[in-house]
Design a protein around this nucleic acid. Sequence first.
DNA 1: CGGTGGATTGAGGTAGATCAACATGCGTGG
DNA 2: CCACGCATGTTGATCTACCTCAATCCACCG
Lengths: 243, 243
Amino acid sequence: MTASLHDFCARRGDLTAPCRLCGAREFNICQALDPAQQDKLFALATRLQLGKRDRLFAAGEPASHVYNLTEGTVALSRSLADGRRQILGFLLPGDFLGLEVGEAHRCDAETLTEAKVCRFERAAFDGFLKDNPEVALRLLKIASSDLAQAARHEVLLGRKTATERIASFLLDLRDRSGARHLRTQPLALPMTRSEIADYTGLTIETVSRVLGRLKSGKVIELIGASAVRVLDDARLERMSGSS
Amino acid sequence: MTASLHDFCARRGDLTAPCRLCGAREFNICQALDPAQQDKLFALATRLQLGKRDRLFAAGEPASHVYNLTEGTVALSRSLADGRRQILGFLLPGDFLGLEVGEAHRCDAETLTEAKVCRFERAAFDGFLKDNPEVALRLLKIASSDLAQAARHEVLLGRKTATERIASFLLDLRDRSGARHLRTQPLALPMTRSEIADYTGLTIETVSRVLGRLKSGKVIELIGASAVRVLDDARLERMSGSS
DNA sequence: CGGTGGATTGAGGTAGATCAACATGCGTGG
DNA sequence: CCACGCATGTTGATCTACCTCAATCCACCG
C-alpha cells in the first residue's frame, strides 16, 4: 500500500524537485544569471542523501551551510527547555533551509523521510551572493513568502480551533504538494501524529480525534495513518476558518 | 503621569529613530552606498505624520509603498472572517513595514499611537533596488530577523502557558525598547489589553488576570494601565519559559 | 463632576489536555 | 511467509487552564 502510494506520488512528479540553485537553471534563483556564474554556482554544490530522522542542523549551531531540498520532507522546529516543541513548518522539495543571515541556526531541522538535499558552503555562497547581488532579490522573495507562511501559521496557532487548525494544515499541505488538480488522489502524510500535533499546537490525542471526526463526517478518508483523501473539498475549506 | 512618562522616554532617546533608509546613512541599509545614490534615495522619501489608530494599509490592498517607522508604535495583524484577530507584532521606531515582495499587503498595519513614518513609492523603491542590488542584502538581513521573531512568536502561541506568554511579551518589548540598562525605569505599554490579548492569543480578561498576578507577586509594578516597571528581572525571565 | 471606554474581578462553562487502556500496523527474525 | 513485539495511533474518562458572560471599577475628558 505504502509502496504503491509512493510510486504514485513519484510518478506524479511532485515528490522531487530540481535544486533551485544549481539544478533548475531556468527557474527561480538562477534566472538571468550568465552561464559562467551558473557554472560557478553549480561547482559549489554538494549533493547529499539523508536517512529518516536525520538532523541537518540544530538551533544554536553555527550556520555553516545553505541547503535546497530536492526530495523528501524536512521539519523545522524550536523547543523549550522542558521539551515542549513547536514545529514551524514542513519543507517540501524545492524549499530552502538555513538561509538565515547570521551566525547561528535559529531552529532545528530534521528529515521526516529519506531525503536528498543540495548543500552549499556558507562562505562560498555568501561570496557568490556578493558577486551576484541580483540573486539576493530572489532570496528576498523567498524570505518574504516564508514570512507570509509564518503569519498564516501565527493566526492558526493563536486564534483557530482544533478543527480549523487540522483543516488548514491539510489544505496547506495539499496545496503545497501540488496535488490540487488531483482531487481524488491520496495525499501523503509523511509526518507522525506527534509532529502534526507539534505543528498545530495541539496534542496527539486531539489530532487523532479531529481526524476521526473529519473521517466519520465524510470530509476526508484516512488511508492507513499516513495518507488522506479529501472527499469534500468545499466543506474542508469552510472548516478551515481562513476567511 | 502619562505626559511625564512620555517625556522621560523621549529624553531617553528610544521613542524615535532616524529613518534607516534615508535619514540614517551611517547605519543599516544605506551603508556603503555612494553619495549620489544616497541623495537619490533621500529624494524618494515622503515624511508622514500619523494620528492614533490610523490605518497605514490593509491586507489585500496593493502594496504601493514601503515605510520606515521613525516615531510611535504600529501593530501588524491578520483577521479571520468572523473578526478574530491575531496581532503578528508591534513595530517600534526603526522598523520597516510593507517590505513584502509581491502585489498585495498580507496584513493590516495600524498605528497604536501618533506616529511618524518615512514613505517610499514602491515602484521607485524597486527601481532603486535594481540599481543598488547590494541593498537587497541588507533587506535580506531584515527579513531574516523578522523571520526569527516570527518563529519565537509561533513558539509562544503554540506551546506557552498564559503566564509564559505575558512574561515573554514584556521581556521582548523591554529588550526592543532599548531600556535594558534602565531596569528601574517604567516600560511604556502603548497597546491596550485587547491588543496584548490579540498578540498573545489570549483574552483581555486573562491578560488582566496574569498581569494582576505578576503584580501581586512583586514581579512587576503596574503604573496606571499603560506602563510597567519590572521589579524582579530574573524571575520574569524564568517565568517566560524561553529556556 | 458625570459620562464613557478601557480595565479589573468574579462565577461558571468548555475545548482541549491529561491520564489510561487498548488497537493497529510495521519491521524483524525465524 | 508468518508470528511476534514494539512503536504509533485510537478511544474513553476525567480534569483544568483558559474562555465566556456579567458585574463593577477606574481613569481620563469634556
